[in-house]
């Protein structure tokens, strides 16, 4: 629902180096804390209602003792041709002028068509109003919505941090550059396997890395044009 305007806006993208990712899941907890993602408890988790905007997929290959494992962090791929967008009857999910796949909570009426249509299964539905046993609610991030029952949610590339980074650049009277915007997962990554930046800027680290011969995108043949780029394992 954006109007076409001439844009020198950044296009946000992420690069994840699978050779460095160890599967330590620091990103998963960092994301939960930063984005007010509730824990649903053991009973609801057993029904598959646990919410993780970012998760570590793990693939075993071979058998004991010649077993190999691959870890892969999976989050919303912020596809340029996002399959979730056209199926939303109320335009709650749409593409922003910065190339983000946005989810507007107060538009969402919870049809869950988007989740159904997402090949990466990164969209999560709130079956209940979230609950934090007091005083755990004191730790909620005041910069992020607390989603209510009946809405879809997913990774926003830490939109609150993007806004902060853009504001900082504006205060200093310049364009955004590497380091201005660091999502919570990238910030805490223990092996520095994750990079985030403006892929429209040819000088940025993500631009440079996206041209690596190790670079690939997830389920590329679907034509979704993801903006998360994976660097395959070395060796």
């Amino acid at each position: 629902m954006t109007e076409e305007r001439k844009s020198n806006k950044p296009r946000w993208a992420m690069v994840i180096d699978l050779d460095r990712c160890t599967g330590c899941e620091a990103c998963v907890v960092a994301c939960r804390v930063e984005n007010n993602i509730p824990t649903v408890g053991p009973e609801e988790a057993a029904k598959g209602r646990s919410i993780n905007w970012i998760r570590i997929e793990r693939y075993f290959e071979g058998e004991f003792p010649d077993l190999k494992v691959k870890f892969m962090p999976v989050l919303c791929q912020h596809c340029e041709e996002a399959p979730c967008e056209p199926v939303c009857p109320v335009y709650a999910t749409y593409h922003t002028d910065e190339g983000l796949n946005a989810q507007v909570y107060n538009r969402c009426v919870g049809t869950r068509y988007c989740a159904n249509n997402c090949p990466y299964t990164v969209r999560f539905f709130n079956f209940f109003d979230p609950k934090w046993d007091a005083p755990l609610d004191k730790a909620l991030n005041p910069e992020v919505s607390v989603r209510t029952r009946g809405v879809m949610e997913k990774c926003t590339f830490c939109i609150q941090r993007i806004r902060k980074g853009e504001e900082k650049a504006k205060d200093e009277g310049r364009e955004v550059r590497d380091g201005d915007v660091v999502p919570a997962c990238v910030q805490t990554c223990t092996t520095k396997a994750m990079y985030f930046g403006n892929i429209a800027d040819p000088e940025s680290e993500v631009s440079r890395l996206s041209k690596s011969n190790r670079a690939s995108r997830l389920l590329e043949d679907l034509g979704t044009k993801p903006k998360v780029i994976y660097l395959n394992k070395g060796d």
Binding site: C24, V28, V29, V33, L140, T191
Partner: peptide
Amino acid sequence: NKIEGNPFHPVNRGALCARGQ
């Protein structure tokens, strides 16, 4: 409302593990 690694600290240089988070 959030804990992050201290980017200048020579032990963890900004990063933090799942427990720390």
